[in-house]
Structures are given as structure tokens and as C-alpha cells.
Design a binder for these strands. Structure first.
Length: 880
DNA sequence: CATCTGGTTATTTTT
DNA sequence: TAACCAGATG
């Protein structure tokens, strides 16, 4: 560990004078450079080192900057060494970003921050050092969801549970949920444990955990849960870490789940009399208020559990403060110097177990906490910020912040209605092209959708337009089948007892070892209580298998023996290449004619390349599942297409937000399942979307959308109504839908909406809608009944740009015909004759192989083998 | 053991 | 609509 030379570490005097607070220290030194550019609030957040601090950092207020500066400050003040600062993030990306920025700030000190990482990687690391205490070995495998489900399927089969009625995925979800809430099998409320498999859910969870130990494996949830168990059952270990970490920093605190909360709580608990750590002494002086310490963690679990266990009734009001009287159980030791940074308005992972409550109740949980609000936004222009703020103000469960900017008002947020989703895509495509003509880079443009199925329409459109785009998100790198397969090979080599890995690749590529063979291996293994691989070795010596299978299996075993031997002589990267090659795995994909085969081979190459960063196979396998994420090169100029969820933390000059319709956004399902809390989370999602935009935010809704194949008529999202009229401009769809301006045509839907409750759902109205929809070749109506209940947004609010009637006009009376569009397109094409001609065989990144059916300038119509007929710009395909 | 077919089911996905 | 999966078929 290298000590940063600039930040010579002074031993922290154990008896730092109380008066020598931050202010005094700060005065002693000239303002360090890293503090210079901070605004007063940021600076306070950086300099308030002692006691619990909650930094409420709104979107674009310099959250990461505060975190990194704070670390720099701690180091330069000599308050802790790099190894004494625990700094947790959720994503690898965030961790990397912080390391990078710290590096820039401090010179090469980053290597010295061993405890900066994600919850899971840090949890995993601690777990590996004390693995034996939780019945694991230090080289345990981290299972991915796939492995989990496979394992659970086996357990279900063993229990004779119909996995049709009780799918393994569902159980995996339940277990994950329990783990997120910090519940070990014995702690799961019996009522909940009973919901699965006729009361056997809890039992299955328990046997799943047992199986994991036998396999020497942990799933993601275990990385934290087992850590908590470790800390609870081994006070000495806990104390070791409590003493080590003088400062704790948490990023995105609003996204922490109960397990993470408990973990933090355990670590942030200062030791009582057992130890005499320097930092604690300091704190005690600072924290008169902290004398009222927190309750025992155990209590908290129960309390939390009870809370979360309560069915999330749709209509349940916000949780009243469930804190019971804390009684006599007081401790004298205050919590450590913990600093949590987050934004309650950006909590969008509730469905993943995140507890907004953690941030809402911070002051409760960490008495004496200082709360600092960062409200100066450095990202968006005035109108955008105002719109976002006004929207989010409709939420009740929030701590409340008021974002402000010193930037110009800029352009108003626009709202555009179109006839259907296709037209929406067309309109957005055109606007993007216009932005491009005006000199904007496509890299500065993003389309953020609520659900990934919405992306398709855009992809289709962009492919025809020849507009480069990139999809962000989607399956993670290490979740891809080919990566998992490759890893399974390596895992089997590394740990012959990894049954799940072996099972995964035993017949990949196909070698004639099907279900029957695997089943018999299983039986054998179970009978003798040996790993599958050993069972295979034994079975090959018998004549229980058909000769063909026996031969194949023998060969596979021989291969593994060979590879294991080669481990001694070849580097791990070489070994990987050898394995992928000799196993026939690469061949398998090379022979594959599907569109994504090439990409998969690339991924495999990327995997091998990434192995170089690790010392050996063991090290690689330990980290891969935690660290591997494709960040994909963002070099080429292209529009970014992603879900709102994956947009969190990003920003773009121009942000397009399509699909603001009831049912889609806010999502009907969330509303049904989570009620008011769900609506608020959706609203936060909207807020996140808007605040991604630096200069232009453009919202869209379509009147008709195809959902699961059938057309339904939709109504604009209530969120549109919640925008402040002053900052919003209603524009007309470029796609040609008549929508907007006063003096429009036809009655506004909102005319109806005025007396909504009754008339909206009338058969007549529905018929009218259906008729309109039919023009598009589909049925209207159908979803109304369902929506009716909560479709009433705040139409009456004076602020609403829609309530003043007249704006939302009948859509698409004079919908522009496709011919016009077509004409425009052709006009835009380069006119140069394509190098392709009829019947050419071509390959397209997305659609795979096909042959050219029609050539118009540089526009081709191609009949793809798999994807059907598509119009594509020739630069998107290559000769096959 | 591989391939075909019909029935089912449709969000969001940090690790 | 389309994509995925489980069971049936060859």
C-alpha cells in the first residue's frame, strides 16, 4: 500500500482536543485545492467529518465530487489512512469513477484505497477472509441467478414439488427478497415462508442454504447476509472491522436494502469499552446528542422484518414511524463517522428491495446526524429543473429539497402527442436528425424509455434511417450465455466439486450427453455423496451408459484432466484459450449462422482479454462475477437508447422521453402492486428522466400503443398533468398528428376528461376511441375498465398545461400518410448507387443474414433469414 | 437425443 | 405479436 506523498499521514492523536474541530484545522492550513471549487454546502459536506452525516444530493448537485473530496479531506487531514476508510457504492461503475477521480485528485493514491468498492465486492472480500466461520472455504464460488435457479429446480424436484405451479424462479425471487431483508431461513416470518409450495418455502430456503455450503458457493445475497451473520456470531471479527474503519462513506444511500443497512449499522457501531479507538473519543465529544444511541441491531431486524413483512397493500398509507419506544436499552457509544450520500427523489429500486425508508429515517437511525442538502444543480437549465422539481413535489414521502440553478431558463420542456408509437418513433427520429443538422453530436442525445419493449420501435426506425444508435443496459456481460459457459469450463477446472458449472457445460457444445445421462450422474453422485465430476469418472468405468455416451463422457473427463494439468505450465489466459478451443466451444459458435454468433465470439475474446488483469485463474474467478460489466466502448457517435432505470447517473444535452401514458408510465403493474408507494416510485423515475437532461427535455405520448400484440388506446400520463404549465410547451408532432394549439380540431379528450369519472368509461366514448384506433388496424378500448380507478390524475390542478382545455386535441385527424414519409426518406438518401445489388447476400449486426430484395439509392430492402423483410441503409450491412 | 410444436406470458434489473 | 419453455414426436 503506497502512502500518497502529498498526504503525509500523521498519527491521529488519541486525545485530539475537542476544540480543535474542523474549523480550526481548516484554518491552520491554507484552503487546499480540492476544497477551492466547492460551494458552501458541498464544502460543509466535505468538512463535517465527525458523527453521522446525511448528504441529500439532488440530481446534478455534485454528489460524486463531494464523496471524493471528502475522502481526500480525511486523508489530508490525517484523520485516517486509506485503509481505514470504508467507501461503498452500488455499482462497479460508480466505484471505478470514484477511484478515477480520487486518483486525479491525489496523484496515485488510489491503490491505497483498498476498501473502496461495491457492497458486494467488499462483503465478498470480508467473507473470503473469514469463510470458515460461515461454513465456506475461502475460494467459494459466487453463483449467478442461473445457477441459483438450476439448484432450486433440483431441490424442488427432490421435494416432489410441481415446478409448473411453483416455479424455481419464483422461489429464487422470494429467497432473494428475504436475503435483501437480512432474513436467514429461521428468521423468515412463518406466514411468508408458507406462501410457496404449500408451506414448504421456508424449508426450501433452508435446504438451499445447506446445498450452497456443500457446493462451497454463495449467491449475491449471501455476500451480505452471511457477512451479517459472521459479524453477529463473531463479535471479535466484527470488532476488528469496526476498529479498522474510522470513516464510512456510502453512495446512493437511498438504494440500500435492509441487509445493507444492517451491515452498515454493524460496522458503524463504535465499540464500547472493549476498545479504545481514537476516533471514537473524538466523536464522543462532538456528539452530545449521540448519547441517545441506537438500539440493538437485533431489535432492528425484527422491527424491519415486521415492517416489510406487512403486505404491501396498495392503499396502505405511508408508513407511520414504526419506531417503538427504545426503552432502557441505551448505549453510550455513538455511531462512527458515517456519511451517507443519496437522494430520496432518485430512489427507483424499491422493487429490488431498496428501502427508501433507510434514507427517510436516517436521522432516526443515526441520532445526532447532520443533514446537509445540496440543492444547487449544475446540470440542467431553468425550465427543465423547474419542471422536474414541480413534478417531484407531488410526492409525499420525501425529505424535500428544492433544486435550483443559476443557469439560464433555456428551452421549455416540450410535450408532444402522436397517434401511435410508430409515429412517436418517427417524430423523435426526425427531431434527432434535426438536432444533428444543427450541429449536435448524437452522443449528446438519449432516448429514455420506461420498459425495454419500447426500444424496438426506435431501433426499427433508426435502422431504416441509418441513424447510429446504441442500446445501453440489457443483459450484463457476464450474464451472457457464452460467458457463463466459458466460466463454467474454467470453474470446473478450478474446482472439480462445482457441480453447477460442470452440469452447465457437460453437453455444451452438444456431445450426446443429454438429460438421461446427467440424471444418472446425479443419482450416482447423490448415492455416494460425491461431486458430479467424480461420479462421472466412476460411471465411465462401469457399463451403465450407452457406449456412445460413455465414450463422450470419457473424452470430456480426459480433457478436463489434461486442462487441469496444463494449469501448471500455461498462464490462465492461455489455458482459457486452450479450453475454449479444445472443448469445441468456439467452434460451436463459429458454425452458428445466427446474427449474434459473431458478437458472442467477440465476447469470448473480450473475456479472455479481461483475464489478463488478474493474477491467476483463482483470482479471476473470484472477482469475475462481481466486477465484470461491459462498459462497452462509447466511442462512435450514436444516440443512446436505454431504460430510465439504467439512465440514473447519466446526463445528456438532449433527452427524449417517449411513452408518457397511463398504464405504461406510470406502469399499471407497479400501481396495482404497490399502490401509492408504487406511484411515487414511478414519479421519481419521471424525475430521474427529466433531470438527465442538460439543455432539452422532450416528452411524448401516443394515443394508441400496441401492447402484447393488440392495439389499445391510451391516455396521457398523469405526470404530464403534474408539470408546471409555465415551463412546458405543447408542440405538434412532427409525425403529423394533429395535436396542439388552440383552435384545433375535434373535441379534446380532456373535454371528456373534465367529467371524467363518468363519461370517460361510457360505451360511447370507448366506441369512439375504438373507431379511431381501428383506422390503425387495431382495436381500441379494452384497458379502460382497469385503468379507470386511478386514471384521475390531477387534471384539475391549475398548473396543468392540459387542464385549461383546448390543448389536447383530437389526434391525427389528418394523419400524414406513409407515402410522404417514404418520399422524405428517399429524398434524404444519398442518391449514390449502392454497392449492393439484387440478391446479394449480406450480414447485418442485428438481423443476421439475408439477401437484398430491393435497392433504392443507398437504401436496401433485405429479406433476412430470421428477422424477415427490413429496410436498411446500406452502411449497416456488409457482404456475407 | 434432437427437433418440433403448442401453450403460456408478457416492467424496471446496481450485484 | 413474439419469444420462451416444456412436453411430444421422430
Amino acid at each position: 500500500m503506497t502512502e500518497p506523498n502529498k498526504l503525509t499521514h500523521r498519527e491521529v492523536p488519541d486525545h485530539q482536543p475537542a476544540a480543535g474541530g474542523i474549523a480550526a484545522r481548516a484554518r491552520a492550513t491554507a484552503t487546499p485545492q480540492y476544497l477551492a471549487g466547492l460551494n458552501p454546502e458541498q464544502r460543509e459536506a466535505v468538512e463535517t467529518l465527525d458523527g453521522p452525516v446525511l448528504v441529500l444530493a439532488g440530481a446534478g448537485t455534485g454528489k460524486t465530487r463531494v464523496l471524493t473530496c471528502r475522502i481526500a479531506h480525511i486523508l489530508s487531514q490525517g484523520r485516517a489512512r486509506p485503509g481505514e476508510i470504508l467507501s461503498v457504492t452500488f455499482t462497479n461503475k460508480a466505484a471505478r469513477e470514484m477511484k478515477l477521480r480520487l486518483g486525479q485528485m491525489l496523484g496515485q493514491a488510489v491503490e491505497g484505497m483498498p476498501w473502496l468498492g461495491t457492497f458486494h465486492s467488499i462483503g465478498g472480500r470480508i467473507l473470503r477472509t473469514h469463510a470458515e466461520l460461515v461454513q465456506l472455504k475461502s475460494n467459494f464460488t459466487v453463483l449467478d441467478v442461473d445457477d441459483q435457479v438450476r439448484l432450486l429446480k433440483q431441490l424442488l424436484a427432490a421435494e416432489n414439488i410441481d415446478d409448473k405451479r411453483w416455479p424455481a424462479r419464483m422461489l429464487a425471487g422470494l429467497i432473494d427478497g428475504w436475503k435483501n431483508r437480512g432474513l436467514t431461513p429461521s428468521q423468515v416470518p412463518s406466514g411468508e415462508a408458507a406462501v410457496f409450495g404449500n408451506g414448504r418455502g421456508g424449508k426450501l430456503y433452508a435446504s438451499y442454504q445447506e446445498r450452497l455450503k456443500i457446493l462451497n458457493a454463495a449467491d449475491f445475497g449471501d455476500l451480505l447476509l452471511e457477512n451479517i451473520r459472521l459479524f453477529r456470531e463473531h463479535a471479535d471479527v466484527l470488532r476488528q472491522y469496526q476498529n479498522r474503519f474510522k470513516f464510512i462513506l456510502v453512495d446512493e444511500y437511498q438504494d440500500t436494502n435492509v441487509a445493507q443497512y444492517l451491515w452498515l449499522r454493524l460496522l458503524s457501531q463504535a465499540q464500547g469499552e472493549q476498545s479504545r479507538p481514537s476516533a471514537d473519543v473524538l466523536e464522543e465529544r462532538h456528539g452530545e446528542a449521540m448519547a441517545t444511541s441506537q438500539s440493538d441491531p437485533g431489535e432492528r431486524v425484527a422491527e424491519r422484518a415486521a415492517k416489510t413483512a406487512a403486505p404491501r397493500d396498495a392503499e396502505t398509507p405511508p408508513h407511520p414511524d414504526p419506531l417503538p419506544a427504545r426503552g432502557e436499552r441505551r448505549r453510550t457509544s455513538p455511531p462512527k463517522n458515517i456519511c451517507c450520500v443519496g437522494d430520496d427523489d432518485q430512489s427507483i429500486y424499491g422493487w429490488r428491495g431498496a428501502e427508501v425508508d433507510n434514507i427517510l429515517r436516517f436521522e432516526h437511525d443515526f441520532p445526532g446526524a447532520k443533514v446537509i442538502r445540496l440543492e444547487r444543480n449544475y446540470r440542467s437549465t431553468g425550465h427543465i429543473l423547474a419542471a422536474a422539481s414541480h413534478l417531484i413535489a407531488h410526492n409525499e414521502s420525501r425529505l424535500g429539497k428544492r433544486l435550483r440553478t443559476e443557469d439560464v431558463d433555456g428551452e421549455k420542456v416540450t410535450v408532444t402527442g402522436s397517434w401511435d408509437s410508430e409515429e412517436e418513433a418517427r417524430a423523435i427520429g426526425e427531431e434527432i436528425e434535426e438536432l444533428q443538422r444543427a450541429g449536435n453530436h448524437l452522443n449528446d442525445v438519449a432516448i429514455l424509455v420506461r420498459a425495454s419493449f419500447q426500444m424496438r420501435e426506435f431501433e426499427d426506425r433508426f435502422v431504416t434511417l441509418g441513424l447510429p444508435y446504441r442500446v445501453i443496459g440489457g443483459p450484463r456481460f457476464y450474464e451472457r450465455a457464452e460467458i457463463r459457459d466459458a466460466l463454467a469450463y474454467l470453474r470446473t477446472i478450478n474446482s472439480p466439486a462445482d457441480d453447477l458449472a460442470f452440469e452447465r457445460i457437460v453437453n455444451v457444445p452438444k456431445r450426446g450427453l443429454g438429460d438421461a445421462t446427467v440424471q444418472m450422474l446425479h443419482d450416482h453422485a447423490r448415492k455416494r455423496r460425491i461431486p458430479l465430476f467424480e461420479a462421472a469418472r466412476a460411471v465411465v468405468e462401469t457399463d451403465e451408459l450407452k457406449p456412445k455416451a460413455r465414450g463422450a463422457l470419457r473424452q470430456l473427463i480426459a480433457s478436463f484432466d489434461r486442462w487441469r494439468a496444463q494449469r501448471e505450465v500455461a498462464s490462465h489466459t492461455e489455458l482459457a484459450e486452450i479450453v475454449l478451443d479444445e472443448s469445441g466451444y468456439t467452434d460451436m459458435w463459429q458454425k452458428d449462422r445466427s446474427a449474434d454468433a459473431a458478437g458472442r465470439l467477440d465476447n469470448l475474446k473480450e473475456l479472455v482479454r479481461s483475464m489478463e488483469e488478474f493474477e491467476n485463474l483463482q483470482g479471476f474467478l473470484e472477482h469475475i462475477s462481481l466486477v465484470m460489466d461491459r462498459d462497452g466502448g462509447a466511442e462512435a457517435d450514436a444516440v443512446s437508447l436505454m431504460t430510465l432505470h439504467s439512465a440514473k447517473g447519466l446526463e445528456f444535452d438532449n433527452v427524449f422521453l417517449p411513452g408518457w401514458e397511463e398504464g405504461l408510465f406510470p406502469s399499471q403493474r407497479t400501481l396495482d402492486e404497490q399502490g401509492r408507494a408504487g406511484l411515487e416510485e414511478e414519479r421519481r423515475l419521471a424525475h430521474v428522466g427529466l433531470t438527465r437532461a442538460r439543455r432539452r427535455a422532450k416528452l411524448y405520448f401516443a394515443t394508441n400503443r400496441r401492447i402484447h400484440g393488440t392495439w389499445s388506446t391510451t391516455i396521457p400520463s398523469r405526470f404530464l398533468d403534474e408539470l408546471p404549465a409555465h415551463n412546458v410547451e405543447i408542440t405538434e408532432s412532427r409525425g403529423g398528428a394533429g395535436w396542439g394549439g388552440a383552435g384545433g380540431y375535434g373535441p379534446s379528450r380532456f373535454d371528456n376528461a373534465e367529467s371524467f369519472g363518468s363519461s370517460y368509461a361510457t360505451p360511447g366514448w370507448q366506441r369512439a376511441q375504438a373507431n379511431r384506433a381501428r383506422g390503425q388496424g387495431g382495436q381500441g378500448g379494452g384497458r379502460q375498465e382497469k385503468r379507470q380507478g386511478q386514471a384521475r390524475g390531477s387534471f384539475n390542478e391549475d398548473q396543468s398545461p392540459f387542464s385549461s382545455r383546448g390543448e389536447a386535441r383530437g389526434f391525427a385527424r389528418d394523419r400524414r400518410g406513409p407515402m410522404v414519409i417514404e418520399g422524405e426518406l428517399i429524398a434524404k438518401s444519398t442518391g449514390t448507387v449502392s454497392e449492393f445489388s439484387l440478391r446479394d447476400r449480406v450480414f447485418h449486426q442485428k438481423f443476421g443474414y439475408g439477401s437484398v430484395v430491393k435497392v433504392e439509392g443507398n437504401k436496401l430492402t433485405i429479406a433476412f433469414e430470421k428477422a424477415g423483410e427490413k429496410k436498411v441503409v446500406d452502411s449497416f450491412v456488409q457482404r456475407a
